[in-house]
Every structure is written in structure tokens, then in C-alpha cells.
């Protein structure tokens, strides 16, 4: 019994390490980010052509890390994602807190959607947002519909409280649109 408690304690502690870890430098063994295809929409935020067309990138997605998700939440507002998707309910862009994923819910799907843009209004942010930040945003977006562990998802808003915090959301089992990734 005592051994079991120790084991549980150890597991919790280790889980906590994972949750709290801050990867300030890229791991040398990190896999490259998935290749992204041509831009799928007419919108490219910022001035056209002023950013980098292609940046070297590595796949730094960590959907279980509280720091990464908190950063993603901050950047989701900073890059005006929230201007269209609000705090997940949508508006100019579709809702992200429900279970409908037009272009796929896997991290690589979301990454491609942000980088390539989508034909019905999603802008292409490639060359505008540093790659590591895109992965932080990907992690945060999954937490909006409860796809991230509750222990890692953000628990509060810095501004007006108009919706339940991400770590209190029930997992919305993804239903991808037919034919999407």
C-alpha cells in the first residue's frame, strides 16, 4: 500500500515536471515541422511579401505542457486569432470550442491551417509567426475544446470572464468534416 502511494506520488511529481517544463531551446533531436503546401486563401496578414516566405522549423508541439499552452493563449490574442474566433465561440471565423473541425483536429492539421490559410477566409500566417509560436498556438487551440489535459490547460482569463476556463471544458470528441485531414 505504502509502495503504491509512493509510486502514485512519483507519477504525479513526474507528470508535474512535464507540465511545468519550459523548453527554452530547441531540442537537437526534434522532428521537422510538417511540410506545408501552397497558400489556400487570398488573405496574408500584414504587408504582403514583407515576412519570410519559408522559415526553417522543427516540430515543437507539446500539448501537455502548461507553459506552452499559456504562451499559446497569449499569442492567440496577440496575433488577433481571437478577433475572429473570439474565446472559442467564433464570429468572423468558425467556433473552436465545439467538436466540428472543418480542416482536421490533429496538431499537424491545425498547423497547416494556420500556415497555409483556408479558402473561405482563414488567412495564411506563414512567414508572419515564428514556427515555435505556431506550435504553442496549436496546443492552445486544442485546449479550447478540451483536447489538452486539464492539468495543462489554462485556468483563467486576464480580461473579462465570459466563458468557462479551458481547464474546465469537457472534451469535445472531434467530428471532422468528410474528406478533411
Amino acid at each position: 500500500m505504502r509502495a503504491l502511494l509512493v509510486l502514485i506520488g512519483l507519477a504525479v511529481a513526474l507528470g508535474g515536471c512535464d507540465r511545468e517544463e519550459r523548453k527554452l531551446a530547441k531540442l537537437p533531436s526534434a522532428a521537422p515541422s510538417p511540410a506545408t503546401g501552397e497558400r489556400r486563401g487570398d488573405l496574408q496578414p500584414g504587408q504582403k511579401g514583407s515576412g519570410l516566405e519559408q522559415t526553417t522549423s522543427s516540430r515543437s508541439f507539446d500539448g501537455k505542457n502548461a507553459f506552452e499552452l499559456a504562451q499559446g493563449k497569449r499569442l492567440f490574442r496577440w496575433y488577433n486569432c481571437s478577433g475572429c474566433h473570439s474565446m472559442g465561440g467564433g464570429g468572423m471565423g468558425p467556433a473552436l470550442m465545439d467538436n466540428r473541425w472543418i480542416y482536421g483536429h490533429e496538431p499537424d492539421d491545425i498547423y497547416r491551417t494556420i500556415m497555409e490559410g483556408r479558402p473561405n477566409g482563414m488567412p495564411s500566417f506563414r512567414g508572419r509567426i515564428p514556427d515555435a509560436q505556431v506550435w504553442q498556438i496549436v496546443g492552445y487551440i486544442r485546449s479550447i475544446s478540451g483536447l489538452a489535459p486539464k492539468a495543462a490547460a489554462p485556468g483563467r482569463n486576464d480580461g473579462l470572464a465570459v466563458t468557462r476556463p479551458e481547464n474546465e471544458r469537457e472534451r469535445a470528441t472531434p467530428r471532422n468534416a468528410p474528406g478533411s485531414g
Binding site: 472559442g88 465561440g89 473579462l160 466563458t163
Partner: peptide
């Protein structure tokens, strides 16, 4: 009327520039 026409999720009161609430 975005809560109907744009399928806004009503659990987020700030959605649609705050009209959803």
C-alpha cells in the same frame, strides 16, 4: 444573428464581438 447564421457557439459570451452573450 450570428449565433444562428454563423454557427457561433453560445458558450462563449464574447463571441461575435460580444453579441453572443
Amino acid at each position: 444573428g450570428g449565433v444562428v447564421s454563423a454557427d457561433i457557439d453560445t458558450r462563449d459570451g464574447s463571441a461575435g464581438l460580444g453579441f453572443t452573450n
